[in-house]
Computed example of a mutant assay.
Amino acid sequence: MAGALRIKRGKFCIFCKNFHYDLWKGGICSMKVAILGVWHVHAPGYTETALRLGEVVGIYDDNPQWRAEFAGRYNIREFTTVEELLCSDAEAVLVCAATNRHAELMIAAAEHGKHIFTEKVLALRVEDCLRVKEAVEKNGVRFVISFPWKCHPGPLALKRAVDEGLIGKVNYLRFRNCHSGSIDHWLPPHFYNAEECGGGAMIDLGAHGMYLTHWILGEPLTYASSFTHFCRDDKDAELNPSRLEDNAVTVMTFAGGAIAVNETGFVSQGCPEIFEIGGDRGYLTYTRNRAVYTAAGKAPVELELPASAKSPLACFLDGTPIEGCGIEEAIMLTKMMTGAYGNVKA
């Protein structure tokens, strides 16, 4: 394996808690992972990262054509059943299956002793999230969910400023994250499957704003959402017959009086990500790779951006501890989505 070194003495792996006498990368043993589903658009990227940092032993998906094409693309083994994958020598699974399959697959993986990395959201119902938590804890496996914005320089800079008290008590937060997937028709058709997805833009792209909101403000008290269906051309009618929302906003309130606004959608061209946090002593903004602090009567100050933190997947693969991407945060995201979808004004 490229980049691996053979060592003469055994070393302790912080991930699997064993001594190894074989191939290592950067002091961590090379983990064997299997790809459990390729439904999500991030499956190729995760697989390429796993091939670079570990070893991919194979792939399973419910769709025979998808799994055969994916296995051929990456020259990895094609498992024809979930059981075959779970009985393999894979130490962990990367879950990229349809969201409504997450709980069932993760519980089975945990019961087979496989560590779990998953695409968001964890599951569509809080009850299913709690079943996953029980299986993870009962079987002593590691769990990491993909919350990549917690590792980006901009949010890290704003979080540090908030924690240091730069803007005083937080009273407002806004996060806008959109793309053109619906109007340019590059999202795959199954992203409009209500049963598999559980919703449209908010439960997909809007997840990032939800977990960032919780990171800064904690659990909301109330939710009020406005969801619309904007793209209505002939192609959209074919792809999105359920008319899932492609333009969405959720407003949340918090115990201390703060308000958060999470904006997302699949119908925007050229819209930058925008992250704003206001307090009673100043205001923070991050957009177009610049973080700025402003206060009354003072000139704006550009904040230094830290380096990107290691991604959740990289931490999972090499055993690095990572905060804020665990089972409790995963459950909270589903709770927040339940609140957002339970209080929709069309």
Rank of each mutant, 00 (worst) to 15 (best):
A207P: 00
I145F: 05
N100K: 09
D62N: 14
P321N: 10
R281N: 14
R131W: 01
L284D: 05
M202C: 02
L303N: 06
E78I: 06
G113S: 12
I327E: 00
K32I: 08
N193S: 11
P306D: 00
L205D: 01
E69S: 06
G265C: 06
E104T: 03
K25P: 09
C129I: 02
W215G: 12
A295M: 02
L212D: 05
V249Y: 02
K11F: 14
R9G: 13
R232C: 08
S311R: 09
Y286C: 08
D236M: 15
K345S: 12
L105G: 00
A299C: 07
E91D: 11
G256V: 04
T253L: 06
G326L: 06
A248D: 08
E263D: 10
R67T: 09
W66I: 02
K345M: 11
A157Q: 01
P188M: 04
P272L: 06
E238A: 12
A90V: 10
T47H: 03
P188T: 09
R9L: 14
M252Y: 05
S242P: 07
I14G: 14
R176G: 10
F316T: 06
P155Y: 07
Q269F: 13
I35P: 02
E195Y: 11
V249S: 07
H229C: 07
S242E: 11
P44Y: 01
N262M: 07
T285C: 10
G140R: 15
G54T: 07
D233V: 10
L305D: 05
R6E: 12
R160S: 14
A307L: 12
V170C: 07
E84Q: 15
C325R: 02
G319Y: 14
S225D: 08
E323T: 00
D22T: 13
F79K: 06
G200M: 01
D204T: 14
G10Q: 14
A314W: 00
N139T: 01
M252H: 01
K8D: 15
S30F: 03
F79S: 01
C29E: 08
H214F: 10
H214L: 03
Y283E: 09
P44M: 04
R9M: 13
M210C: 13
L156C: 10
D163T: 02
P155E: 08
K298V: 01
I216E: 05
